[in-house]
Design a protein around this nucleic acid. Sequence first.
RNA 1: GGUCGCGUAGCUCAGCUGGAUAGAGCAACUGCCUUCUAAGCAGUAGGUCAAAGGUUCGAAUCCUUUCGCGAUCACCA
Length: 593
Amino acid sequence: MLKSAIEKALGQALKNLYSIEEPSVALQPTRKDFRGTYTFVTFPLLKISKKGPEQTGEEIGAYLKVHSDIIADYNVVKGFLNLEVTDKAWLDTFNELNATKNFGFSAPDGSEFMVEYSSPNTNKPLHLGHLRNNFLGNSVARILEANGTKVHKVQIINDRGIHICKSMLAWQRFGNRETPASSGMKGDKLVGTYYVKFDQEYKKQIGELVAGGMDKEEAEKKAPVMLEAQEMLRKWEQKDPEVYNLWQTMNGWVYDGFSTTYETMGVDFDKLYYESNTYLLGKDEVLKGVEAGIFYKKEDGSIWVDLTEDGLDHKLLLRADGTSVYMTQDIGTAIQRFKDYPNITGQVYTVGNEQDYHFKVLFLILQKLGFSWANNCYHLSYGMVDLPSGKMKSREGTVVDADDLMQDMFDTARVHTEELGKIEGFTSEEADELYHTLGLGALKYFLMKVDPKKRMMFNPEESIQFQGNTGPFIQYTHARISSILRKAEVENISASLPLDSSMELADVEREIIYMLTEFESKVKEAAKEYSPAIIAQYVYDLAKEYNRFYAELPIFNEENIELMRFRVMFSKVVADVINRGMGLLGITVPNRM
RNA sequence: GGUCGCGUAGCUCAGCUGGAUAGAGCAACUGCCUUCUAAGCAGUAGGUCAAAGGUUCGAAUCCUUUCGCGAUCACCA
């Protein structure tokens, strides 16, 4: 609105001054060291204006100052024309924002999309990497929704295969019928311990075989527990009742554990896909592809796709014995989802960047099979969360458990809050809720402020900060504003009456109105880039700027009543954007802290 | 070795669809609570944007090469 109005005026200026028919005017924000809000770069115009950069800037600036009632003043530095906006235009802009409910967000436009995230294995508890995955996927879903798209949140649970048989076998052998109830352990944790027990037993047996003279590679294949696990997998595939029951029971424990964790995390799903239901999908599609000549069959009967023309290599799609590989299932599952949700136009897969190649191939194959939606499939590829020691490794016990980390965050929040003595008048329930809000806010913000594509560092020794560029800093800003709004209500200051637009504003106020006008484009950009980090960065900048305002200018001590009203209303709008922006990250903001 | 990604302040990260003197936070140092929440604000210090070439009026940003780190290249998932 404001920006496009200026661009329009600028276009008119270029037309009249230099007879440019279709001027491409792109404004950029003015650097902090100069006066003004928007900057127009004149260098590309010099050939047409046939004048120096300063003179060209002067001409355009002077024209705008006279002909546009939005432009208050201008200054020229080298080839940069910096434009200052009138306070009236700022206040009109503010009034418009204030009058628009949920400005920056779009109403539902009928589009539908699917977002997949989490997608764990059922043999071990969720860890730090899953937290990044879940928070990102869940946030992207919220961001798409804010852009008018109906989103279906799903995950595919890897509930079958050799890994879960390993846990089952170890439980049969060492478990003494232990259950989550009998042990008091969360179900996912309990099953995880048996996965570890299997590995220990496996290693022990390998050691014994090697000591008996077998070479290591063979020992890894011949270790009795491994053979038994494989036998168990065969029984599972034949739906052997005993194995199947145990499988259902132990997976049930895991799901109970997971759902507790998801609830704490504040994420949810609209539909769950299970590999035990989907692992046979895709085979028909692959066979159809062979008939269509898209794939080819080798002499041994295995089926492949040749991707060398696309710069990739040959990829196996069906084994010689006719059984599926991961790719086969993923082809089938993708197609199944478009059958389940006929209105979706694409889907987002939130999966780590170690699978970049896999998804490149998957999307390419879906294209070759002729699915037009394949072009709208996006791999939200995020970087690993590294520890100072490097990658997390379960074998070395360096995995950061999701439940433990969240609990640590709640404890840290409690310690900070108590130190600051900020919970006067809180009931213990309210205090607990606050610790939860702050701890989770700190964690989510920490994991999402970084560009998803980049790998990031988490140092468990230095706990996540609560000051500076953090979730709690932004939450604090919201709590401060809430306090102002409570006071405004007590003092009966009307925030609903229209504002007079003839006041003089301070720089910091103009800057913040400018930032508010940018919210919409940030929300759109975040959707286009599938990047919650863009929102995180924006909300932080806004909160930071608001705190400057808070320190520089009085509100209730302002003598000009109209200006005081403006500042109250202005604070309210900032709080609203902070609230909704943080909401896009799945972070709640408190009214007191 | 092939392919992909990354390398910005002591540390963690922005900036990357080319624009001005490269920004935040943490850590260090200095100020600011008789005024609306100091989880805050203001300031000082800290940089050959991995290196070298190239394109351009202009390069952290685009291209090439080199170095370093990581991922991936399974009839695993």
